[in-house]
């Protein structure tokens, strides 16, 4: 036990995994509150745009949150890539039959754990797209006017491929969180037989809220269940918006 040669925490797989778990919790927490906030789309245009305005009125908080999330996301991704590369090196050859192990394991759990990297990669692409679409407004061909969060969202979801991508990415997010939220208890050593069921149930219900919300919104938008009152042509909204603007002045 030559203690002087002990690897520093962040150079061991356990330490790196712990950081992946902690940053995962941060992103997970954000996803939860983000989803809860977005549920206000069902309260109508006024309420949703007011909520968006309220957030924008606190630029310091917004930018602090963005910074924390960005650091968390980068740490999460960089460490995972490192761990994956290490794992690949540690397993240079494969068996003729891969993994016919535990028949008692459900297909969902199995699929979720086997595709963590893939789902993570697609979610990353989705995050970039989502920011370009509804934060920056830089997706060509998609309606975006700053300050009209509700309209931006609704018209985006009326485009079938956009709604489809949101749906697909969020189902993958569900799988990713399904594995992740169970695994983090193990990774951080927070498991105990007496608590397992409760902690897993809690994590899974939060995941269900996140995924449920994120899946319902694109479907509701696409089928006009929400935002049906908006005219088909986004230009009309702009015109009426201008009129209102002039009236109020």
């Amino acid at each position: 036990m030559a203690s002087s040669q002990v690897l520093s925490f962040t150079r061991t797989a356990i330490g790196q995994k712990a950081l992946v778990a902690v940053t995962g919790i941060i992103l997970y927490g954000f996803a939860f509150f983000h989803a809860l906030g977005n549920l206000q789309v069902f309260l109508g245009r006024e309420a949703f745009n007011q909520y968006a305005e309220m957030l924008q009125s606190m630029p310091k908080l917004v930018w602090a949150t963005r910074l924390v999330l960005l650091v968390a996301l980068i740490t999460h991704v960089v460490l995972v890539v490192r761990l994956a590369r290490r794992a690949r090196e540690a397993k240079p050859a494969h068996y003729r039959f891969e993994e016919r192990m535990d028949p008692s394991e459900g297909i969902l759990r199995r699929y979720a754990r086997q595709t963590m990297l893939l789902s993570g990669l697609i979610i990353l692409a989705y995050i970039v797209f989502h920011l370009m679409h509804l934060t920056v407004g830089a997706v060509p061909g998609l309606f975006f006017v700053r300050g009209m969060a509700y309209e931006n969202l609704i018209y985006g979801m009326r485009t079938p491929w956009v709604a489809g991508f949101y749906l697909f990415a969020n189902l993958l997010l569900g799988l990713h969180l399904y594995h992740g939220c169970r695994a983090l208890f193990q990774t951080l050593g927070l498991r105990h037989p007496q608590w397992d069921r409760r902690s897993f149930a809690m994590a899974l219900s939060i995941t269900a809220v996140i995924v449920g919300t994120n899946v319902i919104i694109p479907i509701a938008g696409l089928t006009r269940l929400v935002g049906g009152e908006l005219p088909e042509d986004p230009q009309e909204v702009l015109r009426t918006g201008e009129e209102k603007h002039t009236v109020s002045e």
């Binding site: 150079r11 797989a13 995994k17 761990l83 690949r88 090196e89 540690a90 535990d102 169970r182």
Partner: peptide
């Protein structure tokens, strides 16, 4: 770590 084993990713 030094022996070149990979890390656990909770496949069980």
């Amino acid at each position: 770590e030094k022996e070149g084993f990979g890390g656990c990713s909770n496949h069980y």
